[in-house]
Design a binder for these strands. Structure first.
Length: 461
DNA sequence: ATAGCCTTGAAA
DNA sequence: TTTCAAGGCTAT
């Protein structure tokens, strides 16, 4: 099995059953059969029941099996009850026309953007081939979590209680549409999307066409991203381990303060878990240990900085710094007695957090970023360089694909993300400089990871 | 009941 | 005029 880039393939797949689409039907691109099914169901006020647990898989071969779940899925992916005409008038156009047009334009723009990044829909088959061990198997990935939604398929309850989609149009010739409860809109994927991205520009068009199927929780994630998310360490677990370790060390070492030494030891512990994360991660763990070390020597500080930044993004408030340990450090208090190096470090750090926040960088993007950083080697001498570069390319794609799908209105977000990355690199250089400086590592034992990494870096330069 | 193909007809 | 998403028809 090979990973296929799902962008174009899924574009003409029905979001309900995966069959080939025949055009826009009731709000989105679907196949002919689901169009018919939806029409019959709404027109005849059908109500179905599910003999299983209301989470049946709907695909081309099984779609006939459970009409209840099929209709649920129709609603979930965003098919519009309002588009079925109550008076059965034929022909003509409805209000969705401009929406379809807009959606088409958006799709085209997106493809253009993809091409401008040199990513074709066709996929080179053997791009991913891990060097020694068995290739990673993507077939086991199942991202279709089954939402427990409460949409009723009983149209009687929805039909007469709501408003008319067309109530402001008095013209008698125009078709009369079914009255639909606003409740229906609440369950549309568009509503779900609003949580993570701006989709105000395309009312009623779910992002299902971006990259295929659409779960109620959000867009389908690129397979790679799903895999990356699995590699994440549990933040709380890491936190408690680090706290434990720090307490232990401070018990031994005497001073229990929260000064530079404490920071140094904490950063050292963070690095330990960054290494642990990397060692357990897809692709990375396939590499020889010597290559692993080269990559980590190259990027540990960027990973460290990204970790700090993303934490501020999650829990942080302006004017304070949240550490892995959960402690909150008041920034003015930290900065006022500090040297110039720490001052600029804090300032630029704040700037970076701010630009991440403005960009609405989400967790998925951060996770992709970590891999982008991990595999971003311009160092030669990595033995399996082609593998590393292929992975890098894959991550690049996954991030681009995700960003385009999750934030379809925000077409240059990906480019801006990359700009942020270069800011992050600059910040990381500064951070490294600071960690080397006598400000912080003056009275710390030498046999630790941070020291070793700093040391190795200096030798390679 | 399903799903492929056909007919319609206002908007573009 | 052409488009193309509505509804309709009908073998399976």
């Amino acid at each position: 099995y090979q990973y296929t880039y799902p962008f174009d393939a899924d574009l003409d797949m029905c979001p309900v059953c995966g069959d080939t689409v025949s055009g826009y039907h009731y709000g989105l691109l679907t196949c002919e059969s689901c169009k018919g099914f939806f029409k019959r169901t709404v027109q005849n006020n059908k109500s179905y029941t599910c003999s299983e647990s209301q989470d049946c898989r709907i695909d081309k071969t099984q779609r006939k099996r459970c009409p209840f779940c099929r209709f649920q899925k129709c609603l979930r992916v965003g098919m519009r009850l309002e588009a079925v005409r109550a008076d059965r008038m034929r022909g003509g156009r409805n209000r969705f026309g401009p929406m379809y047009k807009r959606h088409r334009a958006l799709k085209q723009q997106k493809n253009a953007l993809l091409q401008s990044h040199g990513l074709k829909a066709e996929y080179t088959p053997d791009l991913i081939s891990p060097p020694t061990r068995t290739p990673f198997n993507f077939t086991n990935i199942n991202i279709n979590t089954t939402p427990s939604d409460t949409i009723t398929s009983d149209l009687h309850t929805q039909t007469h209680s709501g408003y008319s989609f067309y109530q402001n149009e008095p013209r008698h010739e125009s078709p009369q549409y079914y009255h639909v409860s606003p409740l229906g809109a609440l369950y549309s994927p568009v509503h779900a999307m609003a949580v993570i991205g701006d989709c105000s520009g395309i009312p009623g068009i779910p992002q299902a066409q971006c990259s295929g199927s659409f779960s109620a929780q959000g867009p389908a994630l690129p397979h790679l991203l799903v895999e990356f998310l699995r590699c994440e360490l549990d933040e709380l677990q890491v936190r408690s381990k680090i706290i434990g370790r720090l307490e232990q060390m401070q018990g031994e070492g005497g001073s229990g303060g929260y000064g530079a030494t404490h920071m140094y030891l904490m950063v050292d512990q963070m690095l330990f878990y960054i290494v642990e994360w990397a060692r357990g991660s897809v692709f990375f763990k396939e590499l020889k240990v010597s290559d692993q070390m080269k990559l980590l020597h190259h990027c540990w500080c960027e990973l460290l900085v990204l970790d700090m930044v993303s934490r501020q993004l999650q829990h942080g408030r302006q004017g304070s710094l949240v550490l892995v340990t959960g402690q909150e450090v008041d920034l003015p208090a930290l900065v006022s007695p500090a040297g110039p190096l720490l001052r600029t470090l804090v300032q630029k750090g704040q700037d970076l957090v701010e630009s991440f926040r403005k960009l609405q960088v989400d967790r998925n993007e951060v996770v992709c970023f970590k891999f982008l950083i991990l595999f971003n080697t311009d160092v030669k001498h990595v033995e399996n360089q082609s593998f590393v570069e292929n992975v890098k390319e894959q991550v690049h794609r996954a991030l681009l694909e995700y960003t385009l799908c999750a934030y379809p209105q925000f077409l240059d977000k990906f480019d801006k993300l990359l700009l942020c990355w270069s800011d992050l690199c600059a910040l990381s250089t500064l951070a490294e400089e600071y960690l080397c400086s006598k400000d912080i590592c003056g009275e710390v034992p030498c046999n630790n990871l941070l020291n070793e990494l700093l040391h190795a870096k200096h030798h390679s330069m």
